[in-house]
């Protein structure tokens, strides 16, 4: 493991020095500021309802208006880009520079290289998202003057962890492509293609497939409509973006009680109230496990391919 730590240390230094990281950091920071601006305006307009909701602080991250989406949706869309940017040339770059053979000829295990690179990516992501969240939260604190409660802080920590998990999935995918493809450009393109597929086409496909499997006619029963909705939800959960949206939505909005479809009869007579942090966490536990599984699967594939690959092209 010491080999992996040495590799990780060097890679972290590389990340922080790289222009690429600075671009990504700037992008995420701008997104944070925009979201903050939107949230500030909206919260001010709806000051009454905001205080009623009771968690003004979290609204900083989830509020949107009719023109702009909230911080969480921005992250859901741009997070993959961060992961891909940090990993798309992890292995192919070493190969292209001619450093891979030299690196592997040192007394370290072969997996130390890929483990170290993944660890370094994770550490970099952690710094990035903890930093940006603290930045947005800090300015928001000055801005609204409402300090977060301890439960809100817990929710915020959970949000950061889930965000790191989500981006770690894309980091692992990027590393996988950097193992499979010799050219960094091919690897980056493959990553972007998968990202766009998950972000844009998978939800569309999910709807189409759901309509085909469980058609909803004009005189459809509630059961039929529910079947269609479940199909659509389950299919779109194949996309890590959906899992992430659901997870952070519930974690940051204590009044959200379900991620699935809900029938009007279920709402009638429902007592207004908020879930505790643990209940929210329990609600999206499957989504979190799904994300962890995604990370494990993508990194596992990258690991196995790298271990089986010949050093020589």
């Amino acid at each position: 493991m010491t080999g992996a730590v040495v590799v990780a240390r060097k890679e972290i230094a590389d990340h922080f020095r790289s222009l690429r990281f600075h671009i990504v950091l700037a992008l995420v920071a701008v997104v944070g500021l925009v979201a903050l601006y939107v949230a500030g305006q909206t919260i001010r307009q709806n000051a009454e309802s905001a205080t009623e909701a009771g968690s003004v602080f979290l609204l900083l991250f989830t509020t949107s208006n009719d023109r702009l989406v909230p911080f969480t949706s921005f992250l859901s869309f741009l997070g993959p880009l961060v992961g891909l940017a940090l990993g798309f040339d992890a292995i192919s770059g070493e190969r292209a520079r001619g450093t891979l053979a030299r690196l592997l000829a040192q007394p370290i295990h072969r997996d130390d290289v890929i483990n170290g690179k993944f660890l370094a990516g994770l550490a970099t992501l952690a710094v990035l998202f903890v930093g940006v969240t603290a930045f947005v939260g800090g300015i928001g604190l000055l801005f609204t003057g409402v300090p977060p409660s301890s439960e809100e802080l817990l929710r915020l920590v959970a949000f950061v962890v889930v965000t790191i998990l989500y981006v770690a999935f894309w980091l692992a995918v990027a590393i996988l492509f950097s193992v499979l493809f010799r050219q960094a450009a091919t690897s980056a393109l493959a990553g972007v293609a998968l990202w766009l597929f998950c972000a844009v086409f998978l939800p569309l496909l999910a709807g189409m497939v759901a309509d085909a499997v469980a058609p909803v006619g004009t005189d459809a029963t509630v059961a039929e409509e529910l079947r269609n909705a479940y199909w659509q939800a389950d299919l779109s959960r194949l996309s890590p973006a959906t899992l992430y949206d659901e997870a952070v939505g519930v974690l940051l909005m204590p009044d959200v009680r379900t991620t699935g479809p809900i029938v009007i009869t279920q709402v009638i007579g429902m007592v207004e109230g908020k879930l505790s942090f643990l209940q929210s966490l329990l609600l999206v536990w499957p989504q979190i496990v799904g994300l962890v599984a995604g990370v494990a699967l993508a990194f596992g594939l990258a690991y196995v391919s790298f271990m089986r690959q010949e050093v020589r092209a």
Partner: peptide, 17 residues
Amino acid sequence: VKRRVGYLPDSVGFYDD
């Protein structure tokens, strides 16, 4: 082996930065 063998690969590369 790798602890005691020095190796210069063909078209050796370094980290340019």
